[in-house]
């Protein structure tokens, strides 16, 4: 599974961080970082993260 975040669109809401903390995190300055190829076992959490992003910045590619 590949995760792509459109960082132009992302406004660092951090909602994704709570849905899938193994994949997304905010650094000290509030900027988003993420794991681009997370383990398949995290699919549900990643899809949830894509749902809760208010900017729809997260895409899950197979």
């Amino acid at each position: 599974m590949r995760v792509v975040v459109d960082l132009e669109t992302c406004q660092d809401h951090g909602q994704c961080v709570f849905a899938a903390p193994e994949v997304f995190h905010l650094d000290e300055n509030g900027k988003l970082g993420y794991v681009p190829e997370p383990d398949e076992s995290l699919r549900d959490a990643v899809e949830e993260a894509a749902d809760v992003c208010p900017l729809q910045a997260i895409r899950v590619e197979d």
């Binding site: 809401h13 951090g14 905010l26 650094d27 000290e28 300055n29 509030g30 900027k31």
Partner: peptide
Amino acid sequence: GRARATAATARYR
């Protein structure tokens, strides 16, 4: 406030 404040707020979650 700014993005730092959002990130700090998130830590209380």
